[in-house]
């Protein structure tokens, strides 16, 4: 699976990532958490090959930077934080997820159509397939784009703060959907999250970033046992039954 070794990145002469090491476990949801400006989105940009970096990002032992773009797109899909709202239908958007597999004559095979239908079905937006993307709510649009990345049919999905513009109820159902994706559909997910409570509730593993470094990476249980989140974010942990939540110190 994905292995990041000694990753360094600079933006506008400022060092953002300073030797990041991270290894993902297959079929798990790993949450990346960290304060604003700690380098979470830069890390996603490096994996997506849109931000220049030094170091190695390997997928099953192969360097992502040296792969042809279409091959890389068949292995890793990335959903950035900012999503456009084009005036195309949801089905058209989801079909764009098949781009790495479609020939120059734009022939959609039966397999491509099945992948699009399957993605719409899994995300639960089949009834919206004829709706225009620019008429959807923020949460529905996020789901439509998630369906697009599912149609891309990659083993690894990377999502950069996907619930930023969602209300609490929608955020909960969206994160439950991500849990379903890795548990039932055997996807590996790396999700940048800003909400520690949700990260602890939904992630199998947590990577904590601080000032361009990964200061902790392990299972959620190990993370809670080591009190890493309390130290890094200066928050207080509370437990109510099995539920854990955090408040500012």
């Amino acid at each position: 699976m994905l292995e990041i070794k000694n990753l360094h990145a600079r933006l506008s002469r400022r060092s953002i990532l300073q030797g990041v090491d991270l290894t993902l476990t297959p079929h798990t949801l790993t949450a990346v958490v960290g304060k604003n400006g700690c380098g979470k989105s830069t890390l996603v940009g490096c994996i997506g090959q849109t931000t220049p970096y030094m170091g190695e990002i390997l997928f099953s032992g192969r360097n992502l930077a040296l792969m042809p773009p279409r091959e890389r797109a068949s292995l890793v899909s990335i959903l950035p934080q900012t999503l456009h709202a084009p005036h195309i239908t949801v089905r058209e958007l989801v079909t764009l997820g098949r781009s790495p597999y479609i020939d120059i004559a734009h022939h959609l095979t039966a397999n491509d159509r099945a992948a699009v239908d399957h993605a719409l079905e899994i995300i639960g937006i089949a009834d919206l397939s004829a709706a225009y993307v620019d008429t959807l709510s923020g949460g529905e649009r996020q789901k439509a784009y998630l369906a697009m990345t599912l149609a891309q049919d990659t083993r690894l999905l990377i999502l950069d703060e996907p619930t930023t513009y969602m209300d609490m109820a929608y955020e909960q159902s969206f994160l439950s959907l991500l849990t379903t994706l890795h548990r039932r559909h055997k996807k590996t997910l790396l999700v940048v999250m800003h909400d520690l409570t949700q990260a602890v509730r939904h992630a199998d593993h947590i990577a904590v970033m601080d000032d361009g470094h990964i200061v902790f990476c392990g299972t959620t249980k190990e993370c809670l046992a080591a009190n890493v989140l309390e130290q890094t974010f200066a928050v207080r942990r509370h437990a109510s039954g099995e539920r854990i939540f955090f408040t500012a110190d």
Binding site: T50, P69, A73, S77, L83, L96, S99, H106, Q152
Partner: peptide, 23 residues
């Protein structure tokens, strides 16, 4: 017209286009 699908992907933003295999 031959490039239209890739152009549509590019219209979604550079980061998504790269993720979908577009140069």
């Amino acid at each position: 017209l031959l490039l239209s699908r890739k152009i549509s992907v590019l219209c979604l933003g550079d980061a998504l286009a790269v993720s979908l295999g577009v140069r």
